[in-house]
Amino acid sequence: MKVLLYSEGKKLFSKSGVGRALKHQMIALEKVGVAYTTDEEDNYDLAHINTIGPGGEKVLKKSRKSGLPVIYHTHTTFEDFRNSFMFSNSLAPLIKRRIKRLYSSADFLISPSEYTRDLVRGYGVNLPIKVISNGVDNEKFTRNAFLAESFRKQYGIEGPLVISVGLPFSRKGVVDFCDIAADKPDIRFFWFGAKITSLLPAKIKKLLNHPPKNVIFPGFVPQETIMGAYSACDAFFFPSYEENEGIVVLEALSMEAPILIRDIPVYRGWMRSEENCLKGRDNRELSFLLDRLVADKKLAGKLTSTGKETALERDLSIIGQKLKNTYLEVLEKR
Results as ranks from 00 to 15, higher is better:
Val3Thr: 13
Ser16Ala: 15
Leu22Phe: 00
Glu30Cys: 05
Thr37Asp: 14
Asn50Val: 11
Ile52Phe: 10
Leu68Cys: 03
His73Tyr: 13
His75Ile: 00
Phe81Lys: 04
Ala92Tyr: 03
Pro93Gly: 04
Arg101Ser: 11
Ser104Thr: 14
Ser104Tyr: 12
Ala106Asp: 07
Leu109Ser: 07
Ile110His: 10
Tyr115Leu: 07
Ile129Gln: 06
Val131Ser: 01
Gly135Lys: 00
Gly135Asn: 01
Asp137Ser: 02
Thr142Asp: 05
Phe151Trp: 11
Arg152Trp: 07
Tyr155Gln: 10
Val162Gln: 05
Leu167Cys: 10
Phe169Asn: 04
Gly173Met: 06
Phe177Gly: 10
Asp179Ser: 15
Ala181His: 06
Asp183Pro: 04
Trp191Lys: 02
Thr197Gln: 10
Ile204Pro: 04
His210Tyr: 12
His210Val: 08
Pro212Met: 02
Lys213Gln: 08
Lys213Arg: 09
Ile216Lys: 10
Gln223Gly: 10
Thr225Lys: 13
Met227His: 11
Tyr230Asp: 02
Ala232Trp: 05
Phe238Leu: 08
Pro239Ile: 04
Tyr241Pro: 01
Ile247Phe: 03
Leu250Ser: 00
Leu253Phe: 11
Met255Lys: 04
Glu256Asn: 03
Leu260Asp: 07
Pro265Leu: 01
Pro265Cys: 04
Met271Gly: 06
Lys279Gln: 14
Gly280Phe: 08
Asp282Ser: 06
Asp282Asn: 11
Asn283Cys: 02
Arg284Gln: 15
Ser287Glu: 14
Arg292His: 11
Leu293Phe: 09
Asp296Trp: 12
Glu309Ala: 09
Glu313Gln: 00
Glu313Met: 00
Ile318Asp: 00
Gln321Gly: 13
Tyr327Ser: 06
Glu329Met: 11
